[in-house]
């Protein structure tokens, strides 16, 4: 197999080419090309089952693509692991697990610790400060099942913060959370962007997407459009992504300008 140059598209935070992912040979992502520049707050949007979670899992090496390649800041994920943070969907774990909020946040450091080493005092300090950043310092010793959905989501976010990454992937961090949590989360995301980090978020709410994010990836099995929000947030693109479901949305808020070229950044 011919190897490309060691660093491929190093100027892009995320570079995906010709990605196809299949479950049991049924493709759910078809020939995706994505280029996300560094330092943006990007949303992945698309209807249920569009493959948004699948895309993130493929990027993080949790699924093996049947075609295509993925680079983060010019290197494959296996080499960039320590520079990537991940917030899985909240429903993907059992919150009745016997542990505290602080302990869950500490898990974000397990990768840096490596095998066998246990987290010590330094780890505890880092985890506590991350909890503080999400406004959860008072809940550090709380059993996680006693937290509200929004609080659990903030714990997950704090766990990603301690990863101290360059690129973050978050799967629906604002689904089903209270208004306070949503404010805290969006504030943090913006802060991360100010620090020059790239944040890529699966977002479910079309009403807020244009105000929160400056970069969009519209996905529905294939990539419908990508680019600056101002350029790709159009009725035409949304209709293409959501099919008939768009009728359910308040189209008044969506600009009716014709779409710009979708494939360029």
């Amino acid at each position: 197999m011919p190897q490309p140059t060691p660093r491929h598209e190093p100027n892009l935070a995320l570079h995906i080419e010709d990605l196809t992912v299949a479950y049991n040979d049924k493709p759910v992502l078809w020939d995706i090309d994505i280029n996300v520049p560094p330092g943006v707050l990007a949303a992945i949007i698309g209807p249920n089952g569009a493959g948004k979670s699948t895309l993130i899992k493929a990027v993080l090496g949790l699924l093996k693509p049947s075609a295509g390649h993925i680079y983060l800041h010019g290197e494959p994920y296996a080499k960039q692991r320590r520079r990537v943070g991940y917030v899985p969907q909240r429903s993907s774990v059992d919150w009745d697990f016997p542990t505290t909020a602080l302990d869950v946040v500490t898990m974000g450091l397990y990768g840096q610790l490596g095998w066998l080493r246990r987290p010590g005092r330094a780890a505890r300090t880092k985890a506590l400060s991350a909890l503080e950043q999400v406004g959860m310092a008072d809940y550090a010793e709380r059993q996680i099942s006693q937290l509200s959905g929004g609080q659990q989501q903030r714990v997950f976010l704090a766990r990603a913060l301690v990863q101290d990454a360059q690129v973050y992937f978050m799967d629906e961090p604002m689904a089903g959370v209270d208004a306070t949590t949503e404010r805290v989360i969006i504030g943090l995301l913006k802060k991360l962007r100010e620090q020059g980090k790239t944040v890529i978020v699966v977002h479910h709410d079309l009403q807020t997407v244009a105000t929160y994010f400056d970069f969009l990836l519209l996905l529905n099995v294939r990539l419908i459009a990508q680019g600056k929000t101002s350029e790709v947030y159009t009725a035409e693109n949304l209709r293409a992504a959501y099919g008939g479901q768009i009728a359910l949305l308040q189209t008044a808020q969506i600009p009716q300008t014709p779409p710009t070229v979708a494939e360029t950044v």
Binding site: N24, D25, K26, D31, A67
Partner: peptide, 20 residues
């Protein structure tokens, strides 16, 4: 069935790639 599908998918991936 899988082998058939894989062949078919690969062919489809190819034409979609070329088409794009």
């Amino acid at each position: 069935q899988r082998r058939r599908q894989q062949g078919e998918n690969a062919a489809r991936t190819l034409v979609v790639h070329l088409y794009n």
